[in-house]
């Protein structure tokens, strides 16, 4: 039985007459963290939205646990926790209410202890949890969004610039969470500008340019990726 959680095969997406993804193929296994690095307009977010079934591919296929995202978007979304770049949560609700509401929508009913544990794991200050999100900083909002993604307990996690707006300590905490989830078998696809973070947490790092995967780096036996090599190629691709 294949342990492939995400599969993009010859994926092609055209938006506004431009090919955003052109013939992209890759797989992410269960328990694997795959980071996609790329500049602006490389097609990073488009890749995630296609896996969510929010964008219809013009060619190829995007599968989540063997299901086509284009054909069965709702079923696919139930297997995915998605963390957008800007934490898309409700300003009029508190952290508790945001978590409870969105989890109810995905048919998850966590107890108070699980909610607290999730918020503890992202280091959201206790005194802020009962306040509406309109009083939160960008980083605090991001923490709530991460907690929400964790509480979904889905087999697949899609992350769009997840550490954007987080302080260094929160970034470190976040990386620990991702590593823990991967050990639990969760497949993580992360798109980011953060080269160092990607190399630190991912098992594989792909360089994306103009909708094509130009290179994939794998972690060596001790689990690390040579940052300098990735950086050089990344910068080279950016300059090209």
């Amino acid at each position: 039985m294949s342990n492939c959680a995400l599969r993009a095969s010859d994926l092609e997406v055209i938006r506004g007459g431009n090919a955003v993804l052109s013939g992209m193929s890759f797989e992410v296994k269960q328990g694997e963290v795959f980071a996609l690095l790329g500049g602006n307009g490389a097609g990073k977010s488009t890749t995630l939205l296609t896996f969510m079934g929010l964008l219809q591919p013009n060619g190829g296929i995007a599968e989540v646990l063997g299901q086509s995202a284009a054909k069965e978007p709702v079923a696919v979304r139930n297997q995915i926790a998605y963390l957008p770049e800007n934490a898309a949560l409700y300003d009029h609700l508190t952290a508790w209410e945001n978590l409870t509401y969105f989890l109810s929508l995905s048919q998850v009913r966590p107890d108070q202890a699980s909610l607290s544990a999730a918020l503890d794991s992202v280091s959201l200050p206790i005194q802020s949890r009962g306040k509406p999100l309109k009083s939160y900083s960008k980083g605090m909002r991001q923490k709530v969004a991460i907690a929400l993604a964790l509480l979904r307990e889905t087999p697949v996690l899609l992350l769009d610039e997840p550490t954007s707006g987080l302080d260094p300590s929160a970034v470190e905490d976040f990386h620990n969470i991702i590593e823990r989830l991967a050990k639990q078998g969760v497949a993580v696809l992360m798109v980011t500008h953060d080269l160092y973070g990607a190399c630190h947490v991912a098992h594989r790092v792909g360089i994306l340019r103009a909708g094509q995967l130009v290179e994939v780096f794998e972690a060596d036996e001790d689990g690390s990726i040579e940052i300098a090599t990735v950086r050089d190629l990344f910068l080279q691709q950016q300059a090209a």
Binding site: L54, V74, R77, A81, P84, A88, F102, L105
Partner: peptide, 14 residues
Amino acid sequence: ENKTLYQLVGQGVG
């Protein structure tokens, strides 16, 4: 406008 539609759709809301 607030991009919360992503979040809603992401929770499996049709």
